[in-house]
């Protein structure tokens, strides 16, 4: 991963406890932005997913999660990130439970006014705005799972739930 504008010094927790520092490693800041609606089943994949992540593991890798929920404007949330990982439900026409790793170019290439969700327009606009201002993440990836059910409900479908570990594995390769 390139870029270290907001890099920090990292120590293992054991070394921290012992008050010694024998090794230093620099990680650029990663923001994992979960988006979606927790009230609408698999629509809330992004939020359910970030709640499963190990906070200590993330902290050691200078990564933080943001529960973006339904927020329509993301520029002010992610402007200090070196890398942005968006996690959301992705309808790509594949079987429910299919995991995706997409670039911003993958998303914009396939979008047309007919299938462009307004909220996604806002997300892409936020990124474009930051880019024009010379701020924001140098790299953005979108991770997601094909939803099964986006009706009322607080739980993920079984098809999606069982794929969360697979998505965690994909995430671990990104940070």
């Amino acid at each position: 991963m390139n870029g270290s504008r907001t890099a920090v010094t990292w120590k293992t927790s054991l070394q921290k406890q012992k008050g010694i520092m024998t090794e230093e490693k620099i990680y650029p800041k990663v923001v994992i932005l979960g988006i979606g609606n927790l009230l609408l089943g698999d629509e809330g994949i992004g939020i359910h997913f970030i709640q499963t992540l190990d906070k200590d593991y993330l902290r050691h890798h200078n990564a933080e999660t943001i529960d973006g929920g339904l927020c329509p404007e993301f520029a002010s949330l992610v402007e200090d990130a070196s890398k942005l990982i968006i996690v959301d439900a992705v309808k790509g026409g594949k079987p429910p439970g299919t995991t995706y790793r997409l670039s911003v170019d993958d998303v914009t290439a396939g979008l047309s006014p007919a299938n462009l969700s307004l909220h996604y327009a806002n997300i892409l606009d936020s990124l474009k705005l930051l880019q024009k201002l010379g701020k924001g993440p140098q790299e953005t990836v979108i991770l997601g799972i094909e939803p099964q059910n986006m009706d009322w409900g607080l739980k993920l479908s079984a098809e999606v739930q069982e794929k969360l570990p697979e998505l965690q594995a994909i995430l671990s390769r990104e940070i």
Partner: peptide, 12 residues
């Protein structure tokens, strides 16, 4: 309405 915003992708 801002209660849904899943991503629709048309693969090219």
């Amino acid at each position: 309405s801002c209660s849904t915003h899943f991503l629709k992708v048309k693969f090219t």
